[in-house]
Design a binder for these strands. Structure first.
Lengths: 354, 354
DNA sequence: TCTTTATTTGAGAGCGCTCTCAAGTAGAAA
DNA sequence: TTTCTACTTGAGAGCGCTCTCAAATAAAGA
């Protein structure tokens, strides 16, 4: 099973290398009988084009890179990245591309990795998932004009193509839900190192504003999307006696739940809780979490679609795609005893099943 | 910032393309002054070699592929794959390779993907994680002599290089632990579609054999490593009134836990439970899970190391690396009230902290 | 019938790198 | 000084593909 070349296939079919290339690539102007003859040789020999040679000649690798910062604990405790990756993989497959995965453990490594990619022709473009406020390499990407799509928001939002979910509305819905249920001391566990965290806090604030309420800073604690951080943040909040808490990730909510449990507080009777993400942990939790569902997989899929457009030279009109989110009402907020009621984000309210 | 070639760098430094190539690749016999001069030009211009051209010329892409079957729900509910991927990424980084990720959603796609990789020169080798008994493409890989390392065990174990954790011993330890605590009706939630599941069942059986006990088939239920399946399996077992259950994955154990909760059974008072994996869910559970810890990340890292050895032409002596596992005693088995006590697998017993 | 135009093919020049081979240089040995 | 053995460099032939260009052929129009 040695590797054949176009040349050899051509010889076997009695045509030139160029003609075989045309058949392989579905080029139009070929006499049917010739196409068929060549195709038969290809089928019989099991010829497969050498992708590297093709890439070199065409100046297009058909490989796109995915950059994931794995420094964050969240990568392991949170199904967010697997879901996202799944969506990206779907996108990649349906566009006949290959996905190169770059997991970077630290900022230095991030920098190093990015540099080792740039200018090497290995990838045609990049999907960048760092939600970190300190993305040092975005300018680098811009400088080298490496096409890329960012997932989430960053400091450079206006200069880049990005796909995101509507974090502001999501948090707004979550908080408004708690407000509308009559809770008085609604705490939040936010994050302050990343952009989505900022947006989610904004949504929280917006809901408060709408209800003419002011935020009590003592009811705001911070985590890093990891489970442990949710636990610690909740412990910090408990002395302030909140009657509800909006936790900006389901995973942190699980941690918070444990803290509440240890403090002998019942959910939702003593304190209501709303999460964010609607990933499996939301359902695994006890009680199941009322949360905000965001279309994570679709985010990944659309990021690829966007990148493909850019690469094909017809960049999308808008620099950003912001996907809608929805409130999913379960037991943890105290609104219902049973589960899984979904409200559309557009309507900015929710319904409860009979 | 247009792309430079070796030729151009050579011209700038007043040497030939070949010499620049030697400097770039750290070739020994170069006059220091020349090396320095060339290096300076490289630094000043920011030259980066075109990886594709290099690969084509050297017949070595330095890309290795990772095949993950994402059909299984477990990919999302279980941090197993993220951990494994993390280890693989570490290995890849430290060997200056690039990782290509192939997520396949179905068997057909698996087949299609594999074929689209074979013979294209894109990857030098593969890491295959499918634990499925029906791996249709392993023979294909062997036929095309594509170097690969399998994670876990498969039907072709004796013909391939593989890295695995000691599933038999792990389950043995878990089961023995329950036996030694005096439980009488020890059920298990196993899996029957994959090889690790077989091994884990074997360990369960071995422990029974050692204690001169026979397995009651009514106390054996099956899942697929996903959370939901654990729930259903447990519901199926409850009528048999087990007083303990060994669940062959933490994620399934979470599902089982929910079923028990619904049935108003207290853990560990009414029924003890032991999981497998020691991934974050084990600690997130309530009560925290006694479980078997396996070095997942290391498995990935070693798989890369093994593949690198094979690619370098000096294949490892042994066809398999089996990593040790250990019992971690927490609250769910009823042995202790507090958490996290680790026993070494080698000793095949455990200690409890004061 | 003779152009004109469209279709079909092959030749050949790269893509940017590696790697062998041979030539040139220098230092050690004779 | 001559010869032999490193060491150091450049020339050049690919790696397997794409893509332009022009030649050859066929179809259509005048």
């Amino acid at each position: 099973m040695k590797k054949l070349t176009l040349e050899e296939v051509g010889k076997l079919a009695g045509v030139s290398r160029a003609t075989v290339s045309r058949v392989v690539n579905g080029y139009p102007h070929i006499r049917p009988e010739i196409r068929e003859r060549v195709q038969r040789v290809i089928d019989e020999t099991g010829y497969r084009p050498n992708l590297l040679a093709r890439s070199l000649a065409s100046d297009r690798s058909n490989i796109i890179g995915l950059v994931i910062p794995s420094g964050a604990q969240a990568v392991f405790t949170d199904p967010y990245f697997p879901c996202l990756t799944q969506g990206i993989a779907r996108g990649v497959n349906s566009n006949n591309l290959t996905l190169a995965l770059f997991m970077v453990h630290s900022e230095q490594e991030e920098e190093r990795t990015i540099l080792s990619i740039l200018g090497t022709g290995l990838v045609d473009g990049l999907i960048v998932t760092s939600d970190n406020k300190g993305d040092v390499f975005i300018p680098e990407l811009l400088k080298h004009d490496m096409p890329f799509v960012q997932i989430g928001r960053s400091l450079y939002s206006n200069q880049v193509y990005r796909v995101d979910t509507d974090n502001v509305t999501g948090s707004y819905l979550a908080t408004k839900h708690l407000l509308s249920l009559g809770y008085q001391r609604i705490a939040t566990i936010a994050t302050n190192r990343n952009c989505s965290g900022d947006d989610r806090f904004t949504g929280y604030a917006n809901a408060f504003a709408e209800y003419g309420r002011t935020i009590d800073r003592r009811l705001v604690a911070y985590g890093d999307y990891g489970l442990e951080s949710g636990y610690h943040a909740m412990r910090q909040l408990i002395p302030q006696r909140p009657d509800a808490v909006f936790v900006t990730s389901d995973t942190m909510a699980l941690g918070a739940l444990r803290a509440l449990q240890e403090a002998q507080l019942r959910v939702p009777d003593d304190i209501a809780i709303v999460g964010y993400d609607d990933l499996p942990p939301a359902v695994q939790a006890n009680p199941q979490l009322t949360t905000i569902r965001q279309p994570i997989e679709q985010t990944g899929f659309l990021a690829v679609a966007t990148l493909v457009k850019i690469l094909s030279g017809e960049p999308p009109e808008s620099h950003e795609i912001v996907l809608p989110v929805e409130l999913v009402v379960r037991a943890s907020c105290g609104a219902v005893r049973t589960n899984a009621v979904v409200a559309s984000a557009q309507k900015a309210d929710y319904r409860v099943n009979p």
